[in-house]
Design a protein around this nucleic acid. Structure first.
Lengths: 108, 108
DNA sequence: CCATTACTCACACAATGTAGTACTAACAAT
DNA sequence: ATTGTTAGTACTACATTGTGTGAGTAATGG
């Protein structure tokens, strides 16, 4: 099973599409109010890659100040599956919990 | 932040209400298709109690064969908050993800 | 006394977090 | 042009927290 942080990274990367790499993923995560240390980010990316849930490759350096080569990220089909399963597990578990709003609406 | 298993236990206990203790929580979890070893269960209950997210106490023995005293569980207000936050974090993160169905409906 | 129900313990492994290091390129000063 | 400074990026080693295992122990009713 994915951890919450792993899910977070996969989801952010999926949303960023072609623009996904360490720094943009981090911004995305912190923008949602969750802190994301650099180290935690890369170790998790490594682990996810080892599990085959995403793949990475080095791009060429861009002509920006400090434009070091980026480690680009994209989600594999397995990665999408894993994320989907995580999401559905949380949904299933949560069914009926008092802190879940609007439970009846989902049926309408 | 809660782990997935911690969330699972809090949710199961919340659903069971007065009847929540080790064995019923375990049944509840396994009924949802997720395995739940005894050891993992109690370790996690211990940790959650240490964090103040739930409280436990020993009940009297029941008059059933083998009816040993049970370690009853109930969720504290902090526990409800933590669960709620976990749920909302996952929801917020997931907004827009391709694997989430019916995204428009939530607005209606 | 023994089958049943339930909990405890000791440890192993996996996921997440922190802090610090190192590399690259633009920019600025000389 | 050379050098130093700074910003953007990636990597590594270690610390902490979360999850898993299953044998072992205790209490109770028959």
């Amino acid at each position: 099973m994915l951890g919450e942080f792993e899910y977070l990274i996969i989801t952010a990367a999926a949303g960023l599409g072609e623009r996904a790499y360490g720094a943009t993923i981090r911004e995305e995560i912190e923008a949602s109010g969750r802190s994301c240390s650099i180290g935690a980010l890369y170790t998790t990316i490594d682990r996810l890659e080892a599990k085959g849930l995403l793949k990475t490759w080095m791009s060429d350096a861009t002509p920006e100040r400090g434009g070091r080569a980026k480690r680009m990220v994209s989600i594999t089909p397995s990665g999408v599956n894993a994320a989907k399963e995580f999401y559905e597990t949380v949904m299933r578990i949560s069914r009926g919990a008092s802190w879940v709003a609007n439970q009846s609406r989902s049926v309408l």
